[in-house]
């Protein structure tokens, strides 16, 4: 029982972070049918922003999250303006490789501009203090993660449900031309989607960096892979699906780690997760929440 609760807390924290990233990926896929493999780089941007601020002007974790989130929003918007805008009508293959090119460029820029090695910055002093509930020990950071993620998801749900921007994004995800006919400006809604995806990635970056305060050129890739998988499990373009996929992936990873027998198998955690995912695609290639529309012939 104790173990179960512990695992649940861990998996909610991890899965929540995946959900924030997957939601951004799904959002961008919704409005322009791009699987953005450069999305994970936003975390890297956030990390180096924190590193620079700490090492130049000094900084405090009281306001650092704002700076990190702002840098992520800015970076996300920039990728749209300099690259994705020009391949908007291209085939998925071209768009996918464009995002990969940006991912490569980001890695290269940090490696060349800063250093291939990890750069650490001050940690949050209280992050790993623990609370004891009976036999269950919970880190403060776990609670912060779960709380912030939940808050971000609730706010996102409200934005999508209540604001004109949210409704426009949902409408554009379903039928872009019809949204244009209503007076929605294509550039604006896509840029808005990138900005919002950047915001969510920024929140995820803050949570990640509070745990592991260091910046490394390729740190975004592992998160990206998990987030893309989560978005695809949920069904690309489905916002509910992205959240469900993120949490499901977090649980799968945490529980496999915990319950697989000792020995070789436990090292194969990632292999198992991806194996399960490959099988999932075979059984249900359209994801949990199907958003595909039939093509007219």
């Amino acid at each position: 029982m104790t173990q179960l609760i512990q695992n649940l807390v861990d998996s909610l924290g991890l899965g929540g972070t995946y959900a924030l990233l997957a939601l951004g990926i799904s959002l961008i896929f919704g409005v322009m049918h791009l699987v953005n493999f450069a999305h994970g780089e936003l975390i890297t941007v956030g990390a180096y922003t924190a590193y620079f601020l700490f090492s130049t002007v000094g900084g405090s974790w009281w306001w650092m999250p704002v700076a990190i989130i702002a840098s992520c929003v800015l970076a996300s918007v920039l990728t749209e303006r300099i690259a994705f805008r020009w391949v908007r009508t291209a085939n998925p293959f071209t768009m996918l490789l464009t995002s990969f090119a940006l991912e490569r460029l980001s890695h290269a820029l940090w490696q060349i501009g800063v250093s291939p090695k990890a750069k650490a910055f001050p940690k949050v002093s209280w992050a790993f203090d623990t609370y004891q509930f009976g036999d269950v020990r919970i880190e403060k950071m776990d609670l912060v993660t779960i709380f912030v993620t939940a808050l971000a998801l609730v706010v996102t749900a409200l934005v999508f449900k209540r604001t004109l921007f949210g409704i426009a994004v949902r409408g554009a995800a379903e039928d872009f031309d019809a949204a244009r006919l209503m007076g929605v400006k294509a550039n604006r809604v896509i840029l808005g989607a990138f900005a919002y995806a950047g915001l969510l990635a920024g929140v995820a970056a803050v949570l990640i960096l509070m745990r592991t305060p260091s910046a490394k050129p390729d740190m975004g890739s592992a998160w990206l892979l998990a987030a893309v998988i989560a978005a695809v499990i949920g069904g690309m373009g489905s916002f509910t699906g992205a959240v469900a996929g993120g949490v499901a992936l977090g649980m799968l990873q945490t529980f496999l780690q915990s319950y697989l027998p000792e020995g070789t198998l436990s090292y194969l955690n990632d292999a198992f997760v991806f194996g399960v995912i490959a099988v999932f695609f075979v059984i249900r290639p359209q994801g949990l929440f199907d958003v595909t529309h039939a093509e007219r012939v």
């Binding site: 892979l225 998988i229 070789t264 090292y267 194969l268 990632d270 490959a278 695609f281 075979v282």
Partner: peptide, 30 residues
């Protein structure tokens, strides 16, 4: 068999998963 049967994005994602699985197996099957 799996890749050739899948449609849309799925085959690309499956190949990505295969890359990771094989890498992990190689790293861990000492």
């Amino acid at each position: 068999v799996v890749v050739a049967r899948a449609h849309g994005l799925a085959p690309t994602m499956i190949t990505l998963a295969v890359l990771v699985v094989v890498e992990q197996v190689v790293k861990n099957w000492k």
